[in-house]
Design a protein around this nucleic acid. Structure first.
Lengths: 194, 194
DNA sequence: GCCTGATGTCCGAGCCCTTGACATCAAGGC
DNA sequence: GCCTTGATGTCAAGGGCTCGGACATCAGGC
């Protein structure tokens, strides 16, 4: 049993993130008020700063948590198939579908006064990319060990960047994009598995 | 929104009470270890003392919480009838049935090394009596205002003491006791409502 | 009779939250 | 153009609570 204090600290962070999430979804990044986050959680403004450093830190933390939740779903889609190409197609489609429905993504990309937030998925997207790459790579290595590790990493990276691009700048519907990516990466994976 | 600190304090108390409850049900009052209560909750022994004062304080607090839960059920039984006598009968039966199934009551009355705990329902039973009297009295005054307040209080007191006696020292089955009490108190209540 | 384990008390150290103050900056009104 | 307002970010003092260790005390077991 970890200490009550440790659990309380985790809970505080979770509640702060909940409050920040709601604020961003409601009013975009500009509508996010550090004082509000504290007040909604029943904590002082200073405590919010202690936990996240600054306003950008709050946004990053919210994004990180949301990304993790995202990856749970995407990995589940991957796990639903034995063939890596089928898994890839399912995962891409799932990711794009989820993104198009996600309130936080919508707020970051289209809400007025969220030009900063959108950078989380573009010029400042390393965190999301790294987190996703790490999780997906681990999943692939575990489920399809017959694929060379560096080839798997390459595929994950390419698919990830294409998907992110489609989230930021939507093109064809999810299923079409998924088919496209699978079609392009399929032959490469076939050579890797021989 | 009350402060995060206040909520945390309530949560701590609840978790401590959960741990103490489990310990008592498992090993009786003697099996309750202050250090265990703290360890199970992830908190130091000193914190347990800060919250409850001493071991008897822990037992009292556990009993108080359990009594409150009890009264929710009993009041619900009361509320299920429009006639006060019917309500009385239902409440008495519910109370006795609940008591006979309650792990804490069983531990207090029959577990080895719980002679102290049993006093909560006998020689040191004021807390339980007062709590119950207060809740039940309020309920009666609200639902049957036609009954004179002091008569209602008298009935509640008498029924309460008889029920408590039957919990500590069981006699006939719950339904029989309920009928008996209702039979005896009925005429008195009839005169009070004219 | 001693040893062990449990209760109950005390106190210093440390952590975290709170409060209030302050500088800074951007936006809006006069 | 200036000033007020409101928001971010920083700082220091203060307080509350927990922790850890120490101690005295007492009952039960070897």
């Amino acid at each position: 049993m970890d200490s009550f204090g440790a659990r309380t600290k985790r809970r505080l962070r979770e509640e702060l993130l909940d409050a920040a999430y709601d604020a961003i979804v409601t009013g975009g990044y500009d509508g996010l008020r550090m004082a509000d986050v504290g007040r909604r959680t029943g904590v002082s403004r200073q405590t919010v700063y202690n936990e996240f450093g600054d306003k950008w830190g709050v946004l990053q933390a919210v994004a990180a948590r949301e990304t993790e939740r995202f990856l749970v779903e995407v990995n589940a889609a991957l796990a639903g198939h034995t063939d890596p190409i089928d898994g890839l197609r399912a995962a891409v489609e799932r990711a794009l579908t989820l993104a198009s429905d996600n309130p936080l993504v919508k707020a970051a990309l289209s809400a007025p006064g969220s030009d900063q937030a959108s950078q989380l998925l573009t010029t400042r997207g390393q965190q999301v990319l790294e987190l996703s790459h790490q999780r997906l790579d681990a999943h692939v290595r575990e489920h399809w060990p017959e694929i060379a590790a560096d080839d798997a990493a390459t595929c994950v990276d390419i698919a990830l960047r294409v998907v992110l691009s489609h989230i930021v700048n939507p093109g064809p519907p999810p299923a079409a994009v998924a088919g496209q990516i699978a079609h392009v990466l399929g032959p490469f994976l076939a050579t890797s598995r021989r």
